[in-house]
């Protein structure tokens, strides 16, 4: 976050805490679409999701004064939304034995069938394969990376994995989309960013 942006969110946050509805609208407009998209990957129940987003903002409004660093607002929103949805799902479906890794995170990537040059075709096949084999946590990770401005550290905290592996997995996918990259370079490339 650039410093002017940081100051801006400090201001918005301060106003929101004091009940300013304009500040609420600013936060709402900035994040709701992404939060809804994120939530829709955890549950397909739209009503439950809408209720969760309501609860999220009430929760943020009521307990948000604990949030000392508004630059973490986005992280706080995603994390809290996930918690609320899971709580509601538990209530709804009477999950008797909940385990940590139940989130399926059904991220559906559409990989179009198009005619590619041989080289890129191969790479995209690999990508397709790789995505279809990703664990739910990895799909969640990609989703957060693409749909938020969260840091690797924050994403890793929400998903519940190590920051290192968050970065690695993102780069592996991105790698496949690069122009003219052969497999030798891949290793080099990986080393550059995972070290």
């Amino acid at each position: 976050m650039r410093s002017t942006e940081k100051e801006y969110w400090y201001l918005v946050w301060d106003k929101f805490k004091n009940g300013d509805s304009e500040a609420f609208k600013t936060i709402y407009n900035e994040f709701t679409d992404a939060l809804f998209a994120y939530g829709s990957k955890i549950t397909s129940n739209r009503d439950l999701l809408k209720d969760s987003i309501q609860d999220l903002f009430i929760d943020v409004y009521t307990y948000g004064s604990k949030l000392r660093q508004p630059e973490l607002l986005e992280f706080y929103l995603f994390k809290t939304l996930k918690r609320i949805i899971i709580k509601k799902l538990k209530e709804d479906q009477r999950f008797s034995a909940m385990n940590e890794d139940f989130e399926r995170f059904d991220l559906k990537f559409t990989i179009e069938d198009e005619v590619f040059g041989k080289d890129s075709e191969k790479k995209l096949k690999l990508l397709q394969k790789e995505i279809s084999q990703l664990a739910p946590a990895s799909r969640e990770l990609l989703f957060l990376k693409f749909n938020s401005g969260l840091s690797y550290e924050a994403i890793a905290k929400i998903v519940g994995i190590k920051p290192d592996s968050a970065k690695k997995q993102i780069y592996r996918i991105v790698q496949r989309l690069r122009k003219d990259m052969d497999s030798k370079n891949l290793e080099l490339f990986m080393m550059c960013f995972t070290a």
């Binding site: 709701t32 679409d33 809804f36 998209a37 829709s40 990957k41 739209r46 809408k50 991220l107 559906k108 990537f109 559409t110 990989i111 179009e112 198009e114 995209l124 990508l127 990609l142 989703f143 693409f146 996918i173 989309l177």
Partner: peptide, 10 residues
């Protein structure tokens, strides 16, 4: 092209 995901947004 290749990493679009489908969502029914609000």
């Amino acid at each position: 092209k290749h990493l679009q995901y489908k969502t029914d947004g609000l």
